[in-house]
């Protein structure tokens, strides 16, 4: 007998009610049960950060949380960053700075950066941005485009 639960989840403002098996990770619930495939899964042990989403505003590894635990919570995924078809400043900066190549790590980096930037009032220096972005792995870019993009957005937002 599967241990199943009815949960309610708000993803990017849309409310969902679904039945999940308790062992399904939030990443799998988002991707496979709710169709938010923008969130990626790269390691399932907390190292790569490809699965990073915002859970009640906090950046978390969706592979290390069970879907049932997110019952009643608000989740923000990469699909919620743009305003309709208009890319957010962060998304635009990633493209401008070539912060992505294959794009597999990109949703995780965007959500990590989104959370970090929302806590920022000033313009962080490069080494701090690198330290924060070190939470996630990218195999393609060598990170420079990612770091540049985050710093540029911090500057823009600081005015």
């Amino acid at each position: 007998m599967k241990d199943i639960h009815l949960i309610a989840l708000t993803v990017n403002g849309t409310e969902h009610e679904i039945v999940v098996e308790s062992r399904r990770t939030l990443a799998d619930v988002l991707r496979h049960d709710l169709g938010y495939t923008g969130t990626h899964v790269g390691c399932e042990h907390g190292i790569c950060g490809a699965c990073t989403v915002l859970l009640d505003g906090q950046p978390v590894r969706a592979c290390l949380i069970f879907g049932v635990q997110a019952d009643g919570c608000e989740v923000r995924t990469v699909e919620g960053l743009a305003d309709g078809d208009e890319l957010s400043d962060l998304q635009k900066a990633f493209s401008r700075c070539h912060g992505l190549q294959c794009g597999f790590c990109t949703p995780g980096f965007l959500m990590l950066a989104e959370a970090y930037l929302s806590e920022q009032d000033g313009v962080p220096d490069e080494s701090e941005v690198r330290e924060v972005m070190a939470a996630n792995l990218c195999r393609c870019t060598g990170y420079q485009g990612i770091v540049d993009a985050v710093r540029q957005v911090a500057e823009e937002r600081a005015g």
Binding site: G46, G49, Q58, P59, R61, I65, A115, A134, A135
Partner: peptide
Amino acid sequence: IGHYPIRCR
């Protein structure tokens, strides 16, 4: 301790 998202959780 780990990274920012790990510490948030």
